[in-house]
Amino acid sequence: MTSRDHFVLTKAFHSSGDVIADRRAGYARMLAEGGDHAAAADLMTQALEITPDWAAGWDLLGLYCEKAGDVSGAISAWRHLEALDDNGVFGAGLKLAAHGAGIASDGTAVSYVEALFDQYAPQFERALVDRLGYRVPEMLDDLVQAEMTRLGIESFARALDLGCGTGLMGEKLRAKAAYLEGIDISAAMIAETARKGIYDSLQKAELVATLNGRRADADLVTAADVFIYCGALQPVLAALVPALQPGGLVAFSLEAHDGPEPLFLRPSLRYAHGIDATRDALVLAGLEILRFETAVLRFDRGAPITGMLIVVRKPPLELNAANDGQSDGGDVAA
């Protein structure tokens, strides 16, 4: 099961407002669950002839066409969806871009990601950990612990877990941080993790906007499988670096690809980043690369998804001061 599959949940099955159209959509769903996606698409087409303004119905038709191998039919359905979904909740633009029928945005599709994880929240951990072999929080925590040992860091005063989800990363960080904050775009995810009592504070917010409003107070920031929904890395780093204390660490994961493009939108609607482009972006942001490893992050449709596990550091204040001193001395000597 993939994130694309998860999105066709509660919102997609809201009533069309017509009993006959709803009945046909229900039959279509049963056919799709049985693997007959072509027949499901035919029934959804009939339903949409009755209710042509049903955005969720066009989303379902696109999904069924895609799974039946009818990419042109899926693209047509998503074009109808895009015209009806002003807020972008169904991610029509992303779906079109992933199939070469549009241009992907460089930033987060906020409405889509929020709706996706609001619906995904109740089954999030079971799907990721049990079905998809997800181990990113554990792997990132191992890297953070190794750097703590190497740098002589006993604990962090204030840690910030971006895209905290249901707290899988937070569970690893709790013993390492005196104060642990969680931020997530999904209210349902926040509600799930609040029950666990892991974090000292939780906030529903879009991460770039939140980081832009912070002072430099975090000495650890984590983002486990979060930036894969954010698009270009540079705007995220530009907001993140000022929120870090000098010497602060950032640990995060990205999906990787080997192509020449710095950014690639997968059919899963997650972004994959180029390895060399990622290194360049980190250096350009003024961050010191401490760890940069590739690993299998999870499985998707039975195939391993290779990604990057990264730990970087904002230069310590004393290094900046030392450099300033050297510069001043040089000017005087000149």
Rank of each mutant, 00 (worst) to 15 (best):
A146R: 14
L84C: 07
A83Y: 01
Y27H: 14
P137F: 10
L249E: 01
D141S: 15
L43I: 10
R174Q: 13
D142T: 15
T210N: 12
A272Y: 01
I75L: 15
G163Y: 07
R266F: 06
L140A: 03
D300C: 02
L202S: 06
L220M: 10
E125K: 06
L263E: 09
F252E: 02
S16Y: 04
S327N: 13
R174M: 08
L151G: 09
A28H: 08
L128A: 08
A28Y: 00
L160D: 01
G152N: 10
V296M: 04
V208N: 13
E192M: 12
A239E: 11
Q46S: 14
A281P: 05
H99P: 02
L265C: 10
S72I: 10
M148T: 09
V311Y: 00
D86Y: 02
P315G: 11
E125R: 08
D18C: 13
F90A: 00
E192I: 02
A285H: 03
S111T: 02
M139W: 00
A12S: 15
A223G: 13
G247M: 07
A243K: 01
Y120L: 04
D85W: 02
L143S: 03
S327T: 15
D276V: 13
L211S: 03
C164Y: 02
L290P: 01
V144E: 04
E171L: 11
Q234C: 09
R215G: 15
P316R: 12
G182W: 05
G26A: 12
L84N: 03
G102C: 06
S186R: 01
S186I: 03
I305N: 01
Q245R: 15
R174V: 12
H80E: 08
I228W: 01
D258I: 00
R214Q: 15
G247V: 08
F264C: 13
S3M: 14
L160R: 07
V71H: 09
T222S: 10
H14I: 12
L284M: 02
G91M: 00
K314T: 02
D53P: 00
L207Y: 07
H273S: 08
R174Y: 11
S253P: 12
D300G: 01
P267T: 13
S76H: 12
E255Q: 10
F156I: 09
A92V: 00
F299N: 07
P52T: 10
G170A: 11
G197Q: 05
R270Q: 14
A295Y: 04
L284C: 06
M44I: 11
F90I: 02
Q245A: 15
A92Q: 06
D85Y: 09
F156G: 06
R135L: 10
D219W: 00
G167S: 12
L60C: 10
A32T: 07
L143Y: 08
T45C: 10
